[in-house]
Design a protein around this nucleic acid. Structure first.
Lengths: 233, 233
DNA sequence: TTTTTAAAAATTGTATACAAAATTATAAAA
DNA sequence: TTTTATAATTTTGTATACAATTTTTAAAAA
């Protein structure tokens, strides 16, 4: 009997992996808004599995930071505070810097070509005014850049940061802003291709700063003074 | 009725949290060597709980990177390859840099005092030739520095990096080396206290490099040529 | 002996039953 | 009406039973 599996688990995805992806996507695409309760029973019925599998999925999502679990009170889509959002962006700056430095050393030509195609797809989404798709592709670009630099730990951190940032953008970005320009992505990629690490790091830093600048990082109104809000009545 | 719990889960630790800590400690203190199988049934019997709780603990440990789970084949203590070890150290450099920068901005006087006490405890462990305790305290120092800079995401990454590095040191450090000097820790803390971020970052970078220098990052003999090993027979 | 095949045992994967806790609804007292 | 207390409902936490898979063992064939 030939042992195909060997050491890798490269079989078809398991049910919990599929469900994880679907819930993850729903959260990042804002079909599940921050704060939404995620009942084990209901999710189990939706996906036709028992609570056992749902609990596994929710625990993983909690670890990735997109879901909050409170003891005996169940799970809900993470509701990031403004202070947490600032912290996430500091952490993301650190991770993206490391990724750019590593990419300048290790990126392959095929990776660069693949990333170029992603930028084109992002551009197309922007021209089609498809904000959701553009945001998703932007995240995918950062993620694939992380994976291309061949450091599974940096890539893992990048995944956590990108998903968390998507949630934050969903929660704090005012819709008055125009869609992200792909020029910045292209410039970063060009600098990496030319192995100009200093330039690439600087461009990436500015890029993340631009993302931050579009956010309105004040605490949501729930914590504000109710008396002041209803003063006009 | 007064609602004490409010929004925080600051009750006593749950059973799975206690078990998580105990297994985590056992791995970091090398009482469970890399590669050791972690049977759900046996662990459940050891701690007097059902497999349900053990599975939850193992999944969390997998997320933190100290345990590997292979589908239908169960969990074992993570066996880091030399290449992975190099990647971890690159990622850790990035995280520690961000922590030092953040600490220079946000650290409080009380935090500095607490960290000083930890350095003294580490020094005592070194003089007592208690290598395990010294290693543990060194990790704790890095962790508490991360927590003191008030960024929960950086602190979370730091926890993952410190635990993973402990595993790597257990696996790859030759015992010929003298125990870590606490001078480096003290110097870093001094630079942070004086808010000299450039110096602090540089010292931290060197510190991690020194840790790396003590490792023998060649692939373990299992992957080597058996014929060559037994050539003398 | 070595390899192949088949059966047995052990281990993990999942659903479910029941316990524990929290939430909601209802009724009694202020 | 508002508050408090109690009961009913819902939801999560855990153990367990059974299914699916892997590993081990034993036997048969090369």
């Amino acid at each position: 009997m030939i042992q195909l599996a060997d050491d890798l688990d490269r079989d078809q995805p398991t049910r919990d992996e599929v469900i994880y992806e679907r819930v993850f996507d729903a959260i990042l695409e804002q079909r599940l808004a921050p704060g939404t309760r995620l009942s084990e029973d209901k999710l189990g019925q939706v996906f036709g599995v028992s609570r056992t599998i749902i609990r596994k999925v929710l625990q993983r999502l909690e670890h990735e930071g997109v879901v909050e679990i409170h003891r005996n009170r169940g799970a809900s889509v993470a509701n990031t505070t403004a202070e947490q959002a600032r912290q996430v962006l500091v952490a993301r700056q650190a991770i993206e810097r490391a990724i750019v430095l590593s990419a300048c050393e290790h990126i392959q030509v095929e990776d660069l070509q693949r990333l170029q195609l992603l930028i084109q797809a992002e551009q197309a989404a922007i021209q089609a005014q498809d904000r959701g798709r553009a945001l998703r592709l932007s995240g995918e670009l950062h993620l694939q850049l992380a994976e291309a630099c061949g450091n599974e730990f940096l890539a893992n951190f990048a995944r956590m940061m990108v998903s968390r940032c998507s949630l934050i953008i969903a929660q704090y970005e005012t819709h008055a802003h125009p869609l992200c320009s792909t020029d910045e992505h292209a410039a970063i990629l060009k600098a990496i291709a030319e192995k100009d690490s200093e330039l690439a790091v600087g461009l990436m830093h500015e890029h993340i700063q631009h993302i931050e600048a579009k956010l309105v990082l004040s605490e949501p109104s729930a914590n504000q003074d109710l008396a002041a809000i209803f003063a006009e009545d």
